[in-house]
């Protein structure tokens, strides 16, 4: 089957690319479009390193075909900061050193943002439950969970 032409929106920008039917969206983002912030961990939907938003919904880009992006809106880690201004989660992760090797970090940030959009005042259990699909093989969960809780508190203060 010939390569397929896909028209989509990525981080608010209209985008087109050509892909093979069997390419995952993760593969197309990284290798066709050079957006390498999204990482491949397991490639089977277990680890969350490839987390993106698809029409605003947190999902694993390794289990989406690139052709399925046609007509939809994709959000990646590259779109999380506004220009030079980091998202509060990104700032807090730096401040609290809530990362070790960093491979899981883009996925964790995308998932944490989705979590806080739904639930701005989560309990620790809710944060751990919400981020259960993001594995950190350095096992740095404690700092990640604390950074998300702190960011949530800070964002609630800013909003009030």
């Amino acid at each position: 089957m010939a390569r397929i032409h896909v028209t989509t929106t990525i981080n608010g920008e209209p985008m087109e690319f050509l892909c093979e039917p069997q390419q995952s969206l993760l593969d197309a983002l990284r290798n066709n479009l050079g957006l390498t912030g999204t990482k491949e961990g397991c490639g089977t939907g277990d680890c969350g390193a490839c987390s993106i938003t698809f029409d605003g919904r947190l999902t694993c880009s390794c289990l989406v075909l690139a052709v399925e992006a046609e007509g939809h809106e994709i959000g990646t880690i590259e779109g999380m900061a506004q220009g030079e201004t980091l998202h509060p989660l990104q700032r807090k992760f730096l401040e609290m050193a809530a990362l070790q090797c960093g491979i899981c970090t883009p996925g964790v940030l995308i998932a944490a943002r989705a979590l806080l959009e739904k639930n701005p005042d989560p309990t620790e259990t809710e944060v751990r439950f919400g981020l259960a699909g993001n594995l950190c093989r350095c096992t740095g969960y404690d700092k990640i969970v604390r950074a998300v809780m702190e960011t949530a508190a800070e964002m609630r203060e800013t909003a009030s």
């Binding site: 969350g48 694993c60 998932a111 919400g130 259960a132």
Partner: peptide, 9 residues
């Protein structure tokens, strides 16, 4: 079941 990512999909 599963994770937030998978339940969304």
């Amino acid at each position: 079941g599963a994770s937030a990512q998978l339940r969304n999909a």
